[in-house]
Design a binder for these strands. Structure first.
Length: 589
RNA sequence: GCCCCCGUAGCUCAGCCGGAUAGAGCAAGCGACUUCUAAUCGCUAGGCCGCAGGUUCGAGUCCUGCCGGGGGCGCCA
């Protein structure tokens, strides 16, 4: 238990049942109490069914003995124990214990959530856009999932180090720089562009033009190659121009991150160029350890675990025949740097699932090199693709990649249309702000609420339909609570009277509220934000049921005060949960 | 050839460490605004959980084998 932590009810019940098992069946002491939420009571324990065989008796008998021991204990929150079915223990808690949870969580600055990640140095590698290229739909998932994990792990006490592995190095820059030199009249700086054109889209256009020239004009291609050599040799003018391009791109990335509510800042960027100067040393280390070996003129690492189609080991390309380095080498350098210099004990790569084999090989090599040790958890946090309505990778009608900014604009447009329909005397300014929050939230929630490993179909209309398991449903639930609290003018701390009887809708709501911290811990463990989405959706539904069944403002005291406390805790929990997903929680919609 | 991921309602998806009658939303039908925001709620209808074995008191969940879909396997990143 860490500071401010409030042990969840299910945790308390686990302790109670475990204790009861210890006393009723000493020979089975320490057994898993198998406590779960239940449709038939607040919680149920399924331990008796599993334990019966070990105790060489019938499940009902075990259940009976455990329930007796449970009833004999006076310090548990359990009010009622019944045995049902083949040996399920149905457990109902005292109303007092539920109200006490509300009071305790309300009194905690962090809602009683523990810090199970405390002391961990966790690197999260995510987003990774390419300099001079527009961010597109392919960057959506890594950026959003990665950012949510950063937020959750940070809230759970981890020291999180964000790493944006920019694609800021490579032969393409020779091409681009040469093209800019050949066309000094090209406009691409953010302060000289006309409204509606971003730096990256300007650079993106120039890049396409440069590519076309490279393919069509051998003389240009030759000059571009010379430029690559100049860049790598550190030629002053070329490097200056390169830095200028990177800075302009970072300016544009910052705009999109800001709009998305993503925490990444320029100082989180350690791109390919950052690792470039480390590569020879990484290669030396792997070579002298005998891990990297020569093959067909190149330097490779043969896997000891995976074979390819020809039956030979799969390889990492450490140094190409021409002496150049690819991204295998760069990723070997990242893992060494993150262990040695960033002191990471957990390294998360939030990257498309198609890179699964690549990371398996990287981790294998890093273990053999002694960089990754048993105490360090390196994981490929794989995610699926975003698909179009046809079930193929999401493209525009003309077959181009979908630009992220345009995708967001479209979602916000749809959100604005829906809000304008129902708006309650909103100013234009409020409408614009809320449409932005709802539209962006809808896109992010749709991405986060599905299992990250699976592909999903991008369907704006469903995302902003504002019904069902959507971001806006959660935002709306939050605004309704805020509205009550505004009218109650309940800004000071509320004293909960724990002796009041619970309405069923209050009971269901409190059980959900109480599970928030355990859900977060689960997200920290599984790295699956959709579990938080599911929980918040259940919470919002439980609140809506409460909202329908239990009047707050018109209730007589002392019920009114307790219900206001429930509203306060609901608003804070929902608000915190949305914040950890990186989604705004407006007070009015 | 080998490896990885996926397969649950017409559609889009949940289903936690194996637990009681598999859940939401959309779409379809019916109903509820004098009420703290109806962007909501209630009801109806909809299922060989890809198939077949196995483990288990108990399998959508674990294991094996198939079938179907997607992805990956040396000088691109």
């Amino acid at each position: 238990m860490t500071e401010h932590e409030v042990r969840s009810l299910i945790g308390q019940v686990e302790v109670a049942v475990r204790d009861a098992i210890d006393r009723a069946l000493p020979e089975l002491a320490g057994a898993d109490p198998v406590v779960r939420r239940s449709e038939h009571a607040d919680f149920q324990s399924n331990a008796a069914l599993a334990l019966a065989k070990r105790a060489r008796t019938r499940p009902a008998e075990v259940a009976g003995a455990v329930s007796e021991a449970l009833r004999a204990s006076t310090v548990t929150p359990v009010a009622e124990v019944t045995v049902s079915g083949p040996g399920f223990l149905n457990l109902t808690l005292t109303d007092v214990s539920l109200w006490q949870q509300v009071a305790a969580r309300l009194a905690s600055p962090r809602l009683g959530v523990g810090s199970p990640e405390q002391g961990r140095h966790t690197v999260v590698d995510y987003s990774g856009p390419n300099v001079a290229k527009e961010m597109h739909v392919g960057h959506l998932r890594t950026t959003i999932i990665g950012d949510s994990l950063v937020r959750v792990l940070g809230f759970l006490g981890a020291e999180v180090i964000r790493q944006n592995h920019l694609g800021d190095w490579g032969t393409q820059f020779g091409m681009l720089i040469q093209y800019l030199d050949d066309h000094p009249d090209a406009t691409w700086h953010h302060d000289e562009l006309t409204e509606g054109i971003s730096t990256v889209s300007a650079l993106d256009n120039l890049y396409r033009a440069a590519r076309a020239a490279f393919d069509a004009d051998p003389a240009f291609a030759e000059r571009a190659r010379t430029r690559v050599v100049a860049l790598q040799a550190g030629d002053e003018d070329t490097v200056a121009r390169w830095k200028e391009i990177v800075a302009e791109s970072e300016f544009a990335f910052r705009e999109i991150y800001h709009r998305l509510g993503v925490l990444l800042e320029p100082e989180d960027s350690d791109g390919e160029s950052f690792y470039n100067f480390l590569l020879p040393d990484v290669v030396d280390e792997l070579t002298s350890a005998g891990i990297a070996v020569e093959s067909d003129g190149a330097l490779v690492v043969f896997s000891e675990e995976v074979t390819g189609p020809d039956g030979n080991p799969v390889t990492l390309m450490v140094r190409k025949k021409d002496g150049g380095y690819g991204y295998d080498t760069t990723d070997l350098a990242t893992i060494r740097y993150r262990v040695r210099d960033l002191k990471a004990d957990r390294i998360l790569y939030v990257v498309d699932s198609r890179q699964a084999l690549h990371f398996r090989l990287i981790f294998e090599a890093a273990r053999r090199a002694g960089w990754l040790t048993d105490g360090i958890d390196a994981a490929h946090v794989a995610h699926g693709a975003v698909l179009g309505p046809d079930g193929r990778p999401f493209k525009t009608r003309s077959g181009d990649t979908v630009k992220l900014m345009e995708l967001l604009d479209h979602a916000v447009d749809r959100a604005r249309a829906a809000i304008a329909d129902k708006a309650h005397e909103l100013t234009d300014e409020d409408l614009a702000r809320i449409a932005e929050q709802a539209g962006i939230g809808a896109v992010k929630y749709a991405d986060l609420s599905t299992s990250r490993i699976k592909d999903y179909v991008f369907d704006v209309e469903r995302m902003v339909s504002f019904n069902g398991n959507t971001g806006v449903y959660l935002q709306y639930a939050h605004t309704r609570i805020c509205s009550i609290l505004r009218k109650a003018a309940a800004d000071r701390a509320t004293e909960v009277d724990p002796t009041l009887p619970l309405h069923p809708a209050e009971r269901a709501l409190i059980l959900e509220l109480d599970a928030f911290g355990d859900t977060l811990a689960e997200v920290g463990r599984t790295l699956e934000p959709h579990r938080l989405c599911g929980h918040l959706y259940d919470l919002a539904k439980a609140f809506t049921d409460f909202y329908e069944a239990c009047p707050v403002l018109s209730a007589a005291e002392p019920v009114r005060t307790n219900r206001i406390a429930l509203c306060q805790l609901s608003a804070r929990t929902l608000g915190q949960g949305l914040n950890l997903l990186g989604i705004a929680a407006p007070e009015r919609m």
